[in-house]
Amino acid sequence: MSILVIAEHHNGQLAGSTAHVVAAAQAIGGDIDILVAGENVSGVAESAAKLAGVGKIKVADDSVYAHQLAEPTAELIAGLADDYSHVLAAASTQGKNVMPRVAALKDVAALSEVIGVESPDTFLRPIYAGNAIATVQSSDALKVLTVRTTAFDAVEATGSAGVEAIDATVDNTLSQFVDEELASSDRPELGSARVVVSGGRGMGNGENFKLLDGIADKLGAAIGASRAAVDAGFVPNDMQVGQTGKIVAPELYIAVGISGAIQHLAGMKDAKVIVAINKDEEAPIFQVADYGLVGDLFEVLPELESKL
């Protein structure tokens, strides 16, 4: 078996997610190559070459791959895929944008958000927002997967793979990059943060969400919210954690003033450690919390911030 891992990178830096995808590739077993597609990506290729267990880094450095638009990137990957049994990428917005397009170009199925490898053709993936886990077998000669990075521990940076430029340019007449507006916040992105602090309807209003800032600063956490808090207009929808929002699986999830509706639990119950702070001791969130603290969040939050 031979596996092609698609490197994820931003602004000339290899994204941490790639080391997790390589770990998923190791779980499948076989030779592992990494594709770095982009413009001016020699630094990314150098970083990728250090990932343990990788045979070769293939570099497609061309202006058509700048911003890694789906149309040319998928065409590039589809052109390389015949040499591989598996093509893997992170289940990031980038991976999810490109990989189904690759699969369709190769006339094979795609498997999204893989969280476990049973065998080279059988994988575990969550359905119904993680309320059920499906074991799915693929009979395609080529398996196209996106991998939930939190489900696989990153490989070490102890390798020294060879780097090889590939001359594979394609035309893109379908799409153009216009601009990019990355959140200026110093906070990590909700979907990949190691710690997430979320507020619910118990926060009372949007202003009170500031009480979470200090704790998030100390923990290097992203800030999320329940659907109830979003529906009440406290915070924008992109902060929503839940079945209809973001699915997160951080090491630590702190739920503040969140009762624990099913739709919210679906978005965060894969967190390694869950802390719940709520004044209602009957709140369902306590049933899934590793550490529950019954109390008034307006007293608990300042105290917690001072003691972290």
């Binding site: 990031s92 980038q94 990059f177 216009v178 507006e181 990355l182």
Partner: peptide, 10 residues
């Protein structure tokens, strides 16, 4: 997209 917004013209 993860971390922000990207605008494309199709």
């Amino acid at each position: 997209i993860d971390g922000g917004l990207q605008t494309v013209s199709l």
